[in-house]
Write a protein that binds this DNA or RNA. Structure first.
Lengths: 213, 213
DNA sequence: CAGTAGGGCTAGGGTTCT
DNA sequence: TAGAACCCTAGCCCTACT
C-alpha cells in the first residue's frame, strides 16, 4: 500500500554524510533545507535522514542496531575519564549562514560522491564524534577516543586504531593535518560537495542554542 | 549536553490531572502556581503542562496527535447540535492540602502488551469535557456527548459508550452519582491527591469564564 | 515581556518488508 | 533471522497571537 520501500542510493547517502559534516548530527531539517542537498534528498524526510544515519552508524561498528544498543547498555556501567589534549580535530568551514535561499550550487557541481567509496566504518564514527563533540577549539584525539569508547564501548586498542586511521585519512587526502596545532580537517568531501577546497580551520558554527547545564 | 528528556512520572501526571480538574484546561500557569501542585510539578513549566496534557488527550481516543488532528479536521465539515439535559455532572471540590501519595489512576502501564485500554482513555476526555464546558449547574450527559462529538468526531455510539463508562466509574468508585440531581462527582483522585475523601456536590470554582461552543 | 495554542522537530522504541 | 526502511509517540522547541 504505502511506501514501496525506497532504497537509499549511494548518492543520497553521500549527501547525507556531507550534510552531517556541514550541519552536524541531529540537524536533519537543516540538512534537508540546505539547497546544497535538498535536490538529492528531495524524496526523503527529516525522519528518513535520522533513521538512515542511525542505520549507518549502527552497522559501522557493531553490525546492527540491536548489538549497538546492548553494547551501549553494557558500557554505561563503567564510565571512565581521561584527558590528554594534543592535536585538535575540527570540521571544515561551513561559513554560510543557515539560509535556505540563495547559494546556488557551484555550477556543474561534480557528481559529488564519485565512484564507489567504501567508506570504512570507523570513518563514520569519526565524523559523528567530531561533529557531536563540538568542542571549542576542536577535538583532540583523546576526546574522540573517549567519546567513541563511551558510546560504543570500543575495543581497548581504540586509541591505536584511531591514530592509525587518522594517519591513513591524512595520507589519502581525506583529512588534512594541521602542522601547527596538529589539526585535521577534511577537504575532500568539502571540495566535492561544496565545490571548492576548504581553507583554514574552523569550528562548527556555534549558533545553536544549547542548553547550558 | 542537552536535557536528557525528563519523563513524566505517574505522580506528576496525577497532579496535572488534578490541576486541570481544579483550574480547567489552559490554565497552566495557574496550576503551577497552585501550592497544591507546585511541589510535584516543580521541574515543569507551563508549556510542559500544556504539552503533556495534549499528549494525554491525543492518545486518549485516537491514539495519536496526528490522527486526532485529522479526525478533528474531518469533523469540522459537519457540526451538529442536539440538546437533551437530564443528569448533571460536575467536578468535585479540590480545596487544599497537598499529599503526594500513591495513587495509581490510569497511568498506563509501560510495557504491558496485549490490548490497549480504551477505558481509562475515555476518562481523560470526560474530565476535559466537564472542565471545559464549565456549565453552571454542571454538565449533563448529552452536553458531554456533544462536546466530545464536536471535538473528536467520536463514533456515533458515543452516547452509549459514555453511559456505560459513567456507570462503570460509579461502580468502581471513581465517580459518585448524585441520586437527587443525578450528579456525578469524582472522589477517587481527589482523595488520593488531596489526602481526603471528597464530600458533597460542587461545581467548578466560578472564577474563570471559558470559551463557549 | 508573559501566557497559551498549535505546528514542528528529534530521539528512540516498534513495526514492516525483504 | 537479520538488516534496512519506515512508523509512532513523548518530550521539547519555535512562532503567532493576544
Amino acid at each position: 500500500m504505502g511506501a514501496p520501500k525506497q532504497k537509499w542510493t549511494a548518492e543520497e547517502e553521500a549527501a547525507l554524510k556531507a550534510g552531517v559534516l556541514k550541519h552536524g548530527t541531529g540537524k536533519w531539517r537543516n540538512i534537508l533545507s540546505d539547497p546544497e542537498f535538498s535536490s538529492v534528498l528531495r524524496s526523503r524526510s527529516n525522519v528518513d535522514l535520522k533513521d538512515k544515519w542511525r542505520n549507518i552508524n549502527a552497522t559501522a561498528i557493531w553490525g546492527s542496531r540491536q548489538k549497538a544498543k546492548l553494547a551501549l547498555k553494557r558500557n554505561q556501567l563503567a564510565a571512565k575519564h581521561d584527558d590528554n589534549p594534543m592535536a585538535l580535530i575540527t570540521v571544515p568551514p561551513t561559513e554560510e549562514v543557515v539560509d535556505p535561499k540563495p547559494l546556488a550550487i557551484s555550477s556543474g557541481t561534480p557528481r559529488v560522491t564519485g565512484p564507489k567509496k567504501p567508506v570504512s566504518r570507523l570513518e563514520n564514527i569519526l565524523l559523528e564524534a567530531i561533529t557531536s563533540l563540538r568542542e571549542p577549539g576542536g577535538s583532540d584525539r583523546a576526546s574522540i577516543a573517549l567519546y567513541i569508547e563511551e558510546k560504543y564501548a570500543a575495543p581497548l586498542n581504540l586509541k591505536k586504531l584511531l591514530a592509525t586511521k587518522l594517519k591513513l585519512l591524512v595520507a589519502n587526502g581525506t583529512l588534512t593535518k594541521d602542522c601547527t596545532t596538529f589539526n585535521y580537517f577534511r577537504n575532500k568531501i568539502s571540495s566535492a560537495c561544496f565545490g571548492r577546497k576548504a581553507e583554514g580551520f574552523f569550528e562548527i558554527g556555534e549558533e545553536s542554542h544549547q542548553h547550558s547545564y
